[in-house]
Structures are given as structure tokens and as C-alpha cells.
């Protein structure tokens, strides 16, 4: 897995709340059997109209907004467990998603793909939206080691939470399979004990 240590970049705002994984990647694009190519269909039905034209009102299509940080409304990633949502965000170029709330399964999927979910307070989220809209070239720093997100232009910052185990994984590029494979002996012992019961 790719490491995530520290990121400084501009951000793209997406203020809608309760963005579900069906919006991030619609079900009709889940027929692929590998992980490649989901980026082009990210937010497909918001990026394009039903007639297939580019929706210029959607913030990902607004040339003013660029960057590898997505700042999104409350309860991001709810709905389906499809990891394709994390793959699509990653393939499009995002490295971190900031919101005031993440749905559980999405959060886990993001962490397993080195896409950092950064949960901030609703007030800080509003500051971020205000900042990005006022100055689309304004940068934000996400420091995983310090667990801090900083608005460079204003100096506002906030600490964020992350599971210590997952933090170590992200900083070092470890993944869960390696860890679980190292535990096969104790897993087998557990199985033997269950058989005796």
C-alpha cells in the first residue's frame, strides 16, 4: 500500500451532505473485474448530464478548483459497501477526503487504499468551504504524523482522530493482509479451541 505522511495542496469543495457511494460511482460501472479505470466514472451522473454533456456547474468541472484534497459535506460515503468508491476517488487523483462525518464502511475502504479520511468539526468544515471558495488557490496541509489539518492562508488548524493501528499502516504503507497472515498460528489455535467446545 502507498504511504501517506503529509500532504499540502489545494482542495475541491463539494458541499452536498449525505453523498452516498451510488453517487461516487454508480452501480452500472461496477461490472469490471479489476481495479483500474474507475476514475473516469467518478461522480458520473453529477459530472455529466443525462445527455452526456459536461455539467459545468459541478465543482469537479469548475476549472477554478483543482487539487488532490476533496472537501465534502456531512456523512460522506454512506450507502453501499462498494470499495469501487474509494478506488474511483483514488484513480481520479484524490489523496485525502475531508468531511465532518464519514460512513463506517467507506472510511475503512478509504484507509485500506491509502486515501486518508479526515474528520473535522462542522465549524472547521465551514471554514474550509469559505476559504476554498474565497481563494481556490489557497492551500491546505494535512499532517498525519501530527494528526493535524491546517488552512495555510488563515492559520486555522484542527486535530483529527485516527485509529493508532491504521495510522501506523498509513505512515508505513502496511496493509491488513500482511498483519493477518502473521497471525495464522493464533487463528488456527482459536479454531482448535472452538472445536473442543
Amino acid at each position: 500500500m502507498e504511504k501517506f505522511i503529509k500532504l499540502t495542496d489545494t482542495a475541491i469543495p463539494l458541499e452536498t451532505e449525505n453523498i452516498d457511494t451510488d453517487q461516487i460511482i454508480p452501480a452500472r460501472f461496477l461490472k469490471a473485474t479489476d481495479k483500474a479505470g474507475f476514475g473516469e466514472n467518478l461522480f458520473r451522473d453529477w459530472r455529466y448530464t443525462n445527455e452526456g454533456k459536461l455539467n459545468t456547474e459541478f465543482s469537479l468541472n469548475n476549472p477554478l478548483f483543482t487539487g488532490t484534497i476533496l472537501v465534502a459535506g456531512d456523512n460522506f460515503g454512506c450507502g453501499s459497501s462498494r470499495e469501487h468508491a474509494a478506488w474511483a476517488l483514488k484513480a481520479y487523483g484524490f489523496k485525502a477526503v475531508v468531511s465532518s462525518y464519514f460512513a463506517d464502511i467507506f472510511k475503512g475502504n478509504a484507509l485500506n487504499n491509502s486515501l486518508l479520511p479526515v474528520q473535522v468539526s462542522p465549524e472547521f468544515l465551514q471554514s474550509l468551504f469559505k476559504y476554498i471558495k474565497a481563494d481556490p488557490l489557497g492551500q491546505i496541509t494535512i499532517d498525519l504524523e501530527k494528526q493535524q489539518i491546517l488552512i495555510l492562508g488563515t492559520g486555522e488548524s484542527e486535530k483529527f482522530e485516527i485509529d493508532p493501528y491504521k495510522k501506523t499502516c498509513m505512515l508505513n504503507g502496511y496493509d491488513d493482509i500482511d498483519f493477518l497472515l502473521s497471525r495464522l498460528d493464533s487463528i488456527k489455535k482459536y479454531e482448535e479451541k472452538q472445536l473442543e467446545l
Binding site: F179, L181, R183, E191
Partner: peptide
């Protein structure tokens, strides 16, 4: 509970999951 595909691979590999 529902899981993502990385976790499907974890269960394939170990019949276990790392979960809080």
C-alpha cells in the same frame, strides 16, 4: 456486517478481519 473488497481478501486469506 458488510465489508469492502480489501476486507473480502483479508477473510479469504485468514478467515479473520481486523476491526475495532
Amino acid at each position: 456486517f458488510g465489508i469492502g473488497t480489501s476486507q473480502v481478501a483479508q477473510v479469504f486469506a485468514s478467515q479473520c478481519l481486523l476491526v475495532e
